[in-house]
Amino acid sequence: MTLHDSILSGDRRALARLITKIENDQPESRAALAALYPRGGRAQVIGVTGAPGTGKSTLVSEMAKAYRRAAKTVAIIAVDPTSPFTGGAILGDRIRMRDLSGDDGVFIRSMATRGSLGGLARATDEVVAVVDAAGFDVIMIETVGAGQSEVDIARLAHTTLVVEAPGLGDDVQAIKAGILEIADVLVLNKADLPGAEAATRALRGMLMLAHTQWDVPICETVAAEGKGVAEVIAAIDRHRNYLLQNDGMIQRERDRVRRQLENLARDLLYSRFIAAKRDEVDAAIEAVASRQRDPYSVVDELLK
């Protein structure tokens, strides 16, 4: 049986193996991806982002339990950063997901960013595609907890949750561009802590200034106790229905595919370019580094 047939028949080990091959960009992963891609498109894809320590992993774990109670299967892709200095990584999101262990309906995979910026791992799109084809009902992607720029998740997920917690900053933080603008649902976790009311007020004030058709809800949760999780899931479902009724789903999918094709084409063109012109590039690096040439005209010349 081929790797992709095993995955379609529910073999978890085959799925785990293919994810590794995709992460390592091994040639055989392309064929499996090509075979699996048409089988996907059914899963509900949820992104969860927010600053470190806001409780993303705990929230994801509690949401997974709620989806399991509703008899939905869940895949979790948890991304943590790769050290830019050593290439190593510590992937620690499973620590908060131990309650999910032993449930056949849950598959958790930790991924390191491997140099990708934007809060996701380089191969996250592809991994979502195979997990989708493997038949999971819900896919949750937990981003790196970096803070203000991991907007890639909004292009990949159908619904993006931004998780905040009290005491992380004043209302100027809340109106900065970026992370809050990608929220389809805002979650104020640790809502039992002092300052929760003020934080919710600041978030609400910020949302009132936003000009979006979709009215972004704010959900207060205490994820460690499971409080408010049902409301988060209800808000996600409302957003999904909103997208389905307004052609938003197909529009999001088109945007996602456009970006994916751009990235794939860019990577492929770049690797062909480097393979064909390695010596010229090396010479150009020397010329620019010693200021004999400038990078702009050098690139023009290399691409002629």
């Binding site: 080990r13 050593t86 190593g88 990584a89 992937l91 499973r94 620590i95 131990r98 262990s101 995979r109």
Partner: peptide, 26 residues
């Protein structure tokens, strides 16, 4: 990690079943 490996850290009090399942998924 400093040696360039990707380390999945699972925390305390893991059962052998939890460890084997995590090894498979990861």
């Amino acid at each position: 990690r400093d040696a360039g490996m990707e380390v999945i850290y699972t925390g305390l009090r893991q059962t052998p079943e939890m460890i084997a399942e995590a090894a498979l998924q990861e």
